[in-house]
Amino acid sequence: MSKMGVTASQTVGPFLSIAMRSEGQEYLVPKNSKNAIKIHGIVYDGEGTPVPDAVIEIWQANINGKYDHPEDNSDNELIKGFSGFGRSCTNNEGQFFFVTQKPGRVNGRGNSLQAPHLAVNILARGMLKQQVTRIYFSDEVQSNAEDPVLNQIDDELERKTLIANFNPNGGLIDEYEFHIYLQGENETIFFDV
């Protein structure tokens, strides 16, 4: 059977916020809910300048390690109202954030288990196609060490570009910092999926 040609990607351009900015889309859970965490960071270009016209999208399992999708065939439990999708348009300082819950572990290929992670799309003017990365968590040392995707990366500094740093934040919401470097010496690891 011959395949149809796919539709090509084009940049979101500078005016993506017309369609992509809307109230509350950074909140996968309410800020004051049990187990809520905040993930925040800045998108930088290759000159170290924050990128004010990017959109970051996340896709994740819930705290039980279950995706709200029919192809997740695990026995982990869904949580009503938790879709697992979030979107954050960067502000003039290149900042983005999400309020969510830390995902549980989900299956990897074979009999492996993945460490808690978020799948991330980055789109911006000057990017003809989205870049894909993952956010892992610095306080998941043991599961990170077992993660088959992280273990494809030998270089310790490169691995670190995928790990959000925990900041206990004095008893308020737990915060994780995750900067995205599109280019340069701290360049984030991106994935070919």
């Binding site: 989900v106 990897g108 992670h117 000057g126 990366i153 599109l182």
Partner: peptide, 17 residues
């Protein structure tokens, strides 16, 4: 020019994610 990664993307197998 300054918004493209210079390192090669790492190919990963498709998981449930």
């Amino acid at each position: 020019t300054f918004r493209h990664p210079k390192n090669r993307a790492i190919k990963i197998d498709h998981t449930v994610t």
